[in-house]
Design a protein around this nucleic acid. Structure first.
Length: 489
RNA sequence: GGUUUCUUGGCCGAGCGGCUAGGCACCGGUCUGCAAAACCGUCUACUCCGGUUCGAAUCCGGAAGAAACCUCCA
């Protein structure tokens, strides 16, 4: 089957046919978290967005190398020289080694990602493990004359770069505007121009995270790691670079400048950006302090939450909106997502026992095509989900005997749900049926019923329960502390 | 202030010039010991004002409102 996938490229602001540089191989780099705090709902968005992109590309038989970094080198909180970085600050406050902070929060992040059923990236490089690569990159940039050193720090010369390249092409910014519109310069910058950005920063005495370099003991600038690590693992040119829209400027713009300066050519073919999750119409973010952590969602322990929401509810909620649209958080929206997901999952249980007939009242082939079309149109998961609900309607109608389906169509329908709901959208049934605790929980109910019967001296019933369980090799033994059960072979 | 984007029914959320998006909620019905589920049906839309067009939620112009980025943020 030949499916033309179309993706929206931020660089061209258009949908483009997806054609890998070196098919069937696809390289995808996504900006990961800075690990100095618990992951919140906003972090789930890119993770899930690029998870379904990863899943779908693999489903289309591409060989995908998916790289998502962990930023464990603290970025400066502000551009002033005496700025402290986020990880160091947290470490100082908690009296821990910065790497303890980074380790703790990356573990938490991974746990959340597993809960959300996000596949692990192929490579998850850490910035701190690639200091050498970053230093080499700075050397190259200085070599080509686009980096300059001032007192142990190295900056990228944006003005000079823009003479031969278009700085601002990704975010649609014009350098002159940037220069005239930059906010207050916070004084004492060593930079030649306010638009220049740091490649290497000399560490102040109190700065704990530091590495040696030809220029000073310090740390790499905050855009450099992505350029260095994407080049290392995906090559000088690769297919997809993803991340949140808030990273568009300056982060990704600077990445382009660095990589281009270094490699002499554009490195990324398709730039993909997910939109923000909002709360009361405003972006949910760390700096605004209006975020709700993923763990809070799963436990329900947050003032803003009326109840707990399972990881799959969160996943489904996010997938019900297109990744390039903002998505507004509310309890009402999450509750309807929860119900919708349940309906979908119930139908997937129903389909297993569905009976086929001579004829079909629905066109499953066409439904399948619509599902492919939805995903091929820039990963339109909400449309895909709408089509899956059409499938749900069919399943329920057939189950009710109001519609019919042939054996062939039934097989196709099962495959459709398996492919699109499970493999591509990465949904999974969280119901008890797929829960390992189920036997224990069921036996508890049965043993309680039997105990009630015994208390009522209804020994016929209590014996019947014991005998019938014995028939399926479950043995009940009455002990002083109550009944226990075990499996006999 | 600059750049970019958005404004759809009770809520969420698709839509890219003509065809019911979908989910949740509501209402009516079928089914039902009760409850739930399921099924059928119904009802609420395209911020406003102009224009292009046989025809616009969809294209163009204007107005109002909102957001993101311009500083770390997914």
């Amino acid at each position: 089957m030949d499916h033309q996938l179309v993706v929206y490229n931020t660089l061209s602001r258009k949908k483009e046919n997806f054609e890998p540089i070196n098919s069937p191989f696809v390289g995808m780099y996504v900006c990961g978290p800075t690990v100095y705090g618990d992951g919140h709902l906003g972090h789930a968005r890119p993770a899930i967005t690029f998870d379904i992109i990863f899943r779908y590309l693999q489903f289309l038989d591409y060989k995908v190398r998916y790289v998502r970094n962990i930023t464990d080198v603290g970025h400066l909180e502000n551009d002033a020289d005496e700025g402290e970085d986020k990880i160091s600050k947290k470490a100082r406050l908690d009296q821990l080694e910065p790497m303890e902070i980074a380790q703790y929060y990356s573990d938490r992040y991974h746990e959340n990602m597993d809960q959300l059923n996000c596949l692990k990236p192929s490579i998850e490089p850490r910035a701190s493990g690639h200091i050498i690569e970053q230093i080499e990159m700075i050397k190259k940039i200085i070599e080509v004359g686009l980096g300059y050193e001032v007192d142990g720090s190295v900056y990228f010369d944006v003005i000079k770069y823009s003479k031969t390249h278009e700085y601002g092409k990704l975010s649609g910014r014009v350098l002159e505007d940037l220069l005239s519109n930059t906010r207050d310069l916070d004084g004492q910058s060593e930079k030649r121009n306010p638009t220049d950005f740091a490649l290497w920063k000399k560490a102040q005495p109190e700065h704990i995270m530091r590495w040696p370099s030809p220029w000073s003991d310090g740390f790499p600038g905050w855009h450099l790691e992505c350029s260095a690590m994407s080049t290392k693992y995906l090559g000088e040119q690769f297919d997809i670079h993803g991340g949140g829209m808030d990273l568009l400027f300056p982060h990704h713009e600077c990445e382009i400048a660095q990589s281009t300066a270094c490699n002499g050519k554009e490195s990324v073919k398709y730039w993909l950006h997910n939109n923000m999750i909002t709360i009361n119409g405003q972006k949910m973010g760390k700096s605004l302090g209006n975020f709700i952590t993923l763990s809070d969602f799963f436990s329900g322990e947050n003032k803003l939450l009326e109840q707990a929401y399972s990881p799959m509810t969160i996943r489904f909620f996010i997938l019900q909106a297109h990744y390039r649209s903002t998505l507004d958080f509310s309890n009402e929206a999450l509750q309807s997502a929860e119900k919708g997901l349940k309906r979908l999952m119930t139908a997937m249980d129903t389909i297993v026992n569905l009976k086929s007939s001579e004829t079909s009242t629905s066109n499953i082939k066409e439904l399948e095509k619509k599902c492919y079309d939805a995903m091929n149109d820039d990963f339109n998961s909400p449309i895909l989900i709408a089509h899956l609900f059409e499938g749900v309607r069919i399943i329920n109608s057939v189950n009710d005997g109001k519609e019919s389906i042939t054996a062939e169509d039934l097989t196709l329908l099962k495959k459709l749900f398996n492919d699109f709901a499970i493999s591509i959208l990465g949904l999974k049934n969280e119901s008890l049926k797929n829960n390992n605790d189920l036997p224990d929980k069921l036996m508890e109910v049965i043993l309680n019923l039997r105990q009630t019967a015994k208390t009522n001296k209804d020994y016929a019933t209590s014996d019947k329960i014991r005998d019938e369980l014995k028939n399926i090799n479950i043995v009940i033994k009455d002990t002083k502390d109550g009944a226990v059960w075990s499996e006999e072979n």
